[in-house]
Design a protein around this nucleic acid. Sequence first.
RNA 1: UGGGGAGUCGACAAGUGGUAAGUCAGCAGUCUUUGGAACUGCCUAUCGGAGGUUCGAAUCCUCCCUCCCCAGCCA
Length: 569
Amino acid sequence: MEDQKTPAAPAQGKDFIRTIIDEDQSTGKHAGKVATRFPPEPNGYLHIGHAKSICLNFGVAQEYGGTCNLRFDDTNPLKEDVEYVDSIQADVHWLGFEWAAMYYASDYFERLYSFGETLIRTGKAFVCDLSADDVRAFRGTLTEPGRNSPFRDRSVDESLELFRKMRAGGFEDGSRTLRAKIDMSSPNINLRDPALFRIRKATHHRTGDDWCIYPMYDYAHALSDWIEGITHSLCTLEFEDHRPLYDWCLEALGLENRPRQIEFARLNLTYTILSKRKLLHLVTGGHVRGWDDPRMPTIAGLRRRGFTPEAIRDFCNRIGLAKRDSLVDVALLEHCLREDLNRRAPRFMGVLDPLRVVLTNLPEGVVEELDAVNNPEDPSQGTRKVPFTRVLLIERDDFREVPPPRYHRLSPGQEVRLRWGYLVRCQEVVKDASGTVTEIRCTYDPATRGGDAPEGRKVKGTIHWVSADHARAAEVRLYDRLFVAPEPDVAPEGSDFLSNLNPASLVVSNAARVERAAADAPPGAFFQFERLGYFTVDPDSGPERPVFNRSVSLRDSWAKIEKKTSARR
RNA sequence: UGGGGAGUCGACAAGUGGUAAGUCAGCAGUCUUUGGAACUGCCUAUCGGAGGUUCGAAUCCUCCCUCCCCAGCCA
C-alpha cells in the first residue's frame, strides 16, 4: 500500500488499541502476527463513521506488517443487497485501501452449520420450540433473571434431528431456533441462552435459496474471525457486553488461537446523522437525492461533494481513538479538506451572481491575454492565460453603492484590483426602473497590467471576474449543512431529526459564469474558484452545461467583520 | 433499583506517581494581487465530586455523582 502518506501521523500518544497490539507483539502473542478485518453488513452505504473503522483496521494492519480482510457480514438476507456490497467495495478502494482477501460470512455457512451440530452434540446448544414472544417472556428483565426454556433439556439426538429438519426447511419461519445453553440467570442478557440460528425462508443475495436457516451475528462473527485467523477484532462500544458471548462461542468449540475483540467509541459528528437507518430514511423519504447526495455523510456523498480520500484519511487520523463517547466538530472535517485542497487545487475564476462592468476606456473588440497563476501554493502548477475585455462580469456582492465600514471592494468613486488584471475605478452606476443596479461603468488604469499597483498606491481590495464574451454558463450547487442543529437528534417533543433539516442545505445558481478551463474540466476534477471556495465537477455535468458542487467554502473573515459591525448597530 | 463502559480546555485528545502536549473552534495581530493561505500571540484547563495514601496524584485506594450501552429469532 503505497501513496498513503497521510500527514500528521501521531508520533507520540499511541491510542489504546495500538498500545495493546504493541504489548501482544512484545509478548509474542499470535506469533507476532496482526490480522484485522473490516466487517460491514451490506445493508446500506458506508459513511464517514465507517471510514474511521476502515482507517483503523487497514491502518493497523499496514503499520504492523499484517493483513486486513474485507468481510461482508451477510447473515440477514432480509436487509441485504448486492447494490450495497458493490458500493462498499468501491468506497473502500476509493479511500485508498486494498484488502488482503475478501470474504462473506455466507462463505462459511456450511462450517457454521456444522459447528452448530457440534455444539448440540456436546450439550452446549439445543433446539428451542418457543415462539419469539415466549422467548422474550422467558428472558426476564434487566433486573430479574430469566427462566429455562422447557425444551432446554431435550435430548441431544432430538435437537440434532430437529436442527437438521430446520435446515431442510421442515419448519416455518420463527417456529424454532438453535439456542446456546449458557445461563438464563446471567446478569448479562446476552448470555441468557441466546439464539445461534433462526429460520428465515428468504432468498439470500449470494447463496440464493440454499439456506433457510441463518446464523446470528455473535455466533457468525466470532467464528468468521476465527476461521480467517483474525488476531484483533475491532468493533464499536455497543458490542462490549457481547464480548463474553463472542468468547463463549470460541471456547465452547474448543478453538485455539482465539481472536481478541476490542471495542472503541464510534464517531459522532456535529450537524450530522450517522445512523444507517436514518440515512436510509433520508433517501427513501426523498429528503435527499440518493445515497450519494453531496449533503450525505456517506463516502459516496462526500466523494460527490468533492472530498478527497486524503482529507478523509487525515481526518480519521486526527480525531483520535478512545472509549469515551465523543462528538467531533464537523469543522474539523472541513478543515482537513481545505488544508488538502489549498495545497493541491488549481485556481480558476468564476462568478456566481454576475454584475456587468463596462470598461469605458477599453475599446470594444480588444482582447488582452493576461497571465494568471494557477496555484500560489504550488508554483509547479504554472500559469494560464485569461482573456480581458471591455465588458466584464464581477460578483454582485463585490459592489456596494453604499459601502459598509471596512468594505474594501468596489463602490462609486473607489478603486479595486481585478485579480491578475488591472486596477479599475467605478465612475458610474446604471440602474433599471426598479432601482436595481444593472451595470457599473469603470475606467481601468493601463499602467497596472497584471494587477501591480504603482509605488505608493495602496489598493486593499482584489476581486475576481470573467470576460462576459468568453465566460461559459454553468450551474453551481452551493451546499450547506444538512441539519441546522449541532445534534440533529435533539428535537422538540413529538418531532424527530427531520424537524432539524436545513431548508437551505442546497442553493442552486443557474446564472454562474466561469472561465473556460473550469467548464472543460471532467467530472470529479477539483479546483478553487478564487475567493468562493473549493468546487468539484458533478457527474450531472455535460459539455453543454457544466455543473459544479461547492465542496467547502473558503474561510470568510469578511463575513465575520460584517456580522460584527452590523450587530453593533 | 441487574450487568457492561466512560468522565482531562467550547470540541477532539496526550498524559499510566514527579508537578497538565497537540489539534480544531474562538479571539487579537502581522503579512498578503484570493478579506484565502502563511505566521505570531491569546484562549490564565488542577484533570466529575469528596475523602485518603504519599515528600509529591489527573495518574494509587475508598465512597459518591453524571453520562452512554444492553431485555431483536438486527448488526
